[in-house]
């Protein structure tokens, strides 16, 4: 774990992964702030965790199964009511590929 050093390239990479179009000033601010936040996490290295299993949750829940039977869903119109753009009862988005 790095001790609070973070490069601009790393910040840009993370912003790309997170789908956040940060401007220059924002990226620089997050570079500094993330470095100081990550430095706080160094405390976790004080512990010997070799034999400790990770916990994703708190209860020993087994996989919850549901019977595979069709049920009514929300009406299409209700689902699309909040959509920024709709075409033929589908969400409309900008093109992914050039024509």
């Amino acid at each position: 774990m790095s001790e609070g050093e973070l490069s601009r390239a790393e910040v840009d990479h993370v912003a790309r992964l997170a789908r956040l179009a940060l401007d220059d000033a924002e990226a620089e601010r997050y570079r500094v702030q993330m470095a100081s936040i990550l430095a706080q996490f160094a405390v976790l290295n004080e512990l010997n965790l070799a034999q400790i299993p990770p916990s994703a949750g708190v209860h020993p829940l087994s996989t919850v199964m549901e019977s595979d039977e069709p049920r009514p869903s929300l009406p299409t119109a209700a689902v699309l009511a909040n959509a920024p753009a709709v075409e033929d009862a589908q969400f409309k988005v900008p093109p992914v590929f050039e024509e």
Binding site: M1, E10, V11, H13, V14, A15, L17, A18, L20, Y30, M34, I37, L38, F41, L44, N45, L47, L49, I52, P53, P54, S55, A56
Partner: peptide
């Protein structure tokens, strides 16, 4: 979102996310 994405990203997942889950235990 930035911190979380970083902690889950390749190369840092074990150092941050898994470690945090072990501490949670």
């Amino acid at each position: 979102i930035m911190v979380g994405t970083y902690a889950l990203s390749s190369g840092y997942y074990d150092a941050y996310y898994v470690k945090a889950q072990q501490v949670r235990t």
